[in-house]
């Protein structure tokens, strides 16, 4: 299809693709080069490549920032939160798409409204609720907060289930299969691409979230990657190479995993987002 286009259009297209690709790759190249340089080299020539690349800087940043601990915390919190979101919201999305009841539309709008509330505004009241429950400074404070991030997931699951014909469930009912079995054995397997998509999107959001861990997780041993990375930036004022190395240490592992699974994610989105 591309080959059928006029040459000038093709050149233009490649130009556009290259500009965007470069704008994304250049900052990374700069980060890597900066991390590998000495502080003196950085202030003298921002462009140059490091004279003797210091690869030890990544290990240093990893150890000084205690990134093992940070990654364990982040992965634990994110895994539980994402599992909860997918479980709760796939169920709710299925109910909103396949069942008829009064106030269905109102309930759907109620679930969507949360998307439009700036999260900063609920910061203080939420903190009070968590403090009342005695959960501040525990993993559960953030996990429960993430459980409440339902709007996008419900929106997405509802659209996905709406694309699955209701006749399927009806046929199962005629055969006397229980509602739970219809949901767990028929509907959920059909929705697995949507579940994968929601899981990935939420994984990224929660893994990168900064505000809630900042407020709730005071104890240093509970810190997440983003939180620890920010603390690292603050406590290594003039050590530009180490600061940039910490940025890379905090971003590279999720990025690599994400890129490896890119195809699955994309197909998940194709099948998911547009089913309706």
């Amino acid at each position: 299809m591309f080959k059928s286009l006029p040459l000038i259009v093709r050149i233009g297209a490649y130009l556009l693709l290259s500009i965007l690709a470069l704008s994304i790759l250049l900052p990374f190249a700069w980060m890597i080069a900066t991390a590998l340089k000495t502080t003196a080299e950085i202030s003298q020539s921002p462009f140059s490549l490091p004279a003797t690349p210091n690869f030890g800087v990544f290990a240093e940043a990893w150890l000084q920032g205690d990134f093992t601990r940070l990654y364990l915390n982040s992965l634990g919190i994110t895994a539980i939160a994402v599992t909860g979101i997918v479980a709760c919201c796939s169920a709710a999305g299925y109910a909103l798409a396949h069942f008829e009841f009064r106030a269905k539309e109102a309930l759907f709008l109620y679930f969507l409204a949360g998307m439009m509330i700036p999260p900063q505004v609920i910061l203080v009241p939420s903190f009070k609720i968590m403090a009342t429950l005695g959960l501040v400074n525990s993993y559960w404070s953030v996990i429960l907060t993430y459980f409440a991030w339902v709007p996008f997931a419900i929106f997405f699951f509802r659209a996905y289930f709406a694309g699955i014909p209701r006749e399927l469930a009806e046929a199962a009912r005629v055969e006397g299969i229980s509602e739970w079995d219809i949901y767990l054995r028929v509907m959920l397997p059909l929705a697995s691409p949507a579940m994968a998509t929601v899981a990935i999107v939420y994984f990224i959001w929660i893994f990168n979230d900064f505000m809630w861990p900042l407020v709730y997780l005071n104890d240093q041993s509970l810190r997440t990657v983003t939180l620890g990375m920010m603390a690292f930036q603050g406590s290594h004022a003039a050590l530009m190479n180490l600061k940039v190395a910490a940025l890379l240490v905090a971003t590279a592992p999720p990025l690599i995993i994400f890129l490896i699974f890119r195809r699955q994610i994309q197909s998940g989105l194709v099948e998911g987002a547009l089913k309706a």
């Binding site: 909860g84 479980a87 709760c88 919201c89 169920a91 709710a92 299925y94 109910a95 909103l96 069942f99 309930l107 109620y110 679930f111 409204a113 949360g114 509330i117 505004v121 609920i122 009241p125 939420s126 609720i129 429960l144 907060t145 459980f147 409440a148 991030w149 339902v150 709007p151 419900i154 949901y183």
Partner: peptide
């Protein structure tokens, strides 16, 4: 099906709101 999502959303998002 709706209860868990409704519960968490209401208590930890809409109530503070």
């Amino acid at each position: 099906l709706l209860l868990p999502a409704f519960f968490f959303y209401t208590v930890f998002w809409m109530l503070p709101a």
